[in-house]
Design a protein around this nucleic acid. Structure first.
Lengths: 243, 243
DNA sequence: GAGTGGTCTAGACCACTCC
DNA sequence: GAGTGGTCTAGACCACTCG
């Protein structure tokens, strides 16, 4: 009757194509090399451009490719390991590090952050924006929220004021911190800073800093998911997983 | 001359649509509720179905929606916090936990894992597969690699043998562990276990266990990125970030 | 079998980068 | 201006779930 056939589930074209391309990347292309354009690739593999793009998106999601409008698709280097847990004193901005303070203002935190800061009377927070660079690339943006009551009066304005807020934090004794990581889509402003398109996949790291028994700061950092591998705990040789 | 206009960058339709839908989700829908089907939604907002789907994909990426073929699109509950750092003794499988051993065999590790196990003579590893359930849902799969030389002879077969491998590990003194987190696409076998489609976004957690100065085990865990928020360090109240 | 989301097509136009 | 990736359309068919 013909129903005996296993009827192997037909693998979607884009999935098969992804596998084929992935192998081609391993064998025929070097890091940084540009691929043929999407129209040519689609023709070469006999699929519609949209289907090819689905395969490319997968590969980009895995960090194998990098696509830039107006330029082309290039073979991405292995993701860089980015340590998210090595601020020496525990506090952000303690040492010379990869973060640069971009701005600092006073504003109400978003609801999700306010919940984490519920220990404190509701009110304006120092909102400190930082950008992290690694190997010449902006890999993360962060917004740090510190309730006004924690630091007291802080002089100055702009980035300089940000340094003062950090200094005020450093004078507190840190009880501990905890983190969470989840997948997100880059908001328009973050995307611009990270040189990505809005909606690009990002890893959102939320850190809560606890001192004197209460949450005194909350950081929400947005890492490029295509180029970064977040590492925790300094044992891992950053280059081991690469290549 | 007309060039004075700011020429506001036209926001892509799907991006705007995503915003609109996101607000609708907040105000007009309850968790678990099913949305109208894609064809109706597309018609309602006056866009092609592909464009609507782009918006839905974004929302799914952010954990706001859950789509299931043949069923429909439902409003997802807030992501659950899943602790990835609380095996009591440090070793995997130490306590009654959410992991269930599925299988255990002897095989050569993939190249990426072999690099992390370079301390040991190349050879077969115990390959232990586990599945993690949380709130009745499979949220992660893990493959644990333990070089054969670390445990010596291990009796039994299948899941029981897996328990023996874990026990052998527990007899060692753990120096430490480190982890990395990166974005990935679910392989076909993982996708099946997680009740997702191949290629779904996942968070890949690589853990290296160090004892006696060498890496004695490597775990590669694959978490559903749509439903999980990975937490590190037990301070964070799992429910605080929710809702 | 009806209804859902998933895949795929063949085209069009737009925004961007670089020459 | 030429060439790239990004957006969008209007349709078709497939795989899956459920009654």
């Amino acid at each position: 009757m013909g129903t005996t056939q296993v009827d192997t589930v037909p693998e979607p074209k884009y999935w098969h194509l992804k596998t084929v391309l992935s192998e081609a990347l391993d064998t025929e292309f070097a890091v940084g090399q540009v691929l043929p354009n999407e129209r040519d690739l689609a023709a070469r593999y006999g699929v519609a451009r949209a289907t090819l793009r689905q395969a490319l998106e997968q590969l980009e999601l895995e960090g194998r490719l990098q696509r830039r409008r107006g330029v082309g698709t290039t073979v991405a280097p292995p993701r860089m390991g980015v340590d998210v847990a090595t601020d020496p004193g525990g506090w952000p901005g303690t040492a010379e590090d990869a973060w640069r303070v971009e701005d600092c203002s006073l504003a109400a935190p978003p609801a999700a952050v306010a919940r984490l800061l519920a220990d404190h009377p509701p009110g304006p927070c120092h909102v400190l924006r930082r950008v992290r660079s690694e190997r010449g690339q902006h890999v993360a943006t962060e917004v740090l929220y510190v309730p006004g009551g924690v630091t007291g009066e802080v002089p100055g304005s702009g980035p300089a004021r940000g340094g003062a807020v950090l200094s005020a934090l450093h004078r507190l004794e840190l009880d501990g911190q905890d983190r969470s990581v989840e997948l997100g889509a880059a908001r328009a402003d973050d995307a611009r800073r990270l040189d990505r398109l809005p909606g690009s996949p990002v890893l959102v790291v939320t850190t809560r800093y606890v001192a004197g028994g209460t949450t005194v700061a909350v950081a929400v950092a947005t890492y490029r998911a295509d180029t970064c591998r977040l590492t925790f705990g300094g044992l891992l040789d950053a280059d081991l997983l690469a290549g």
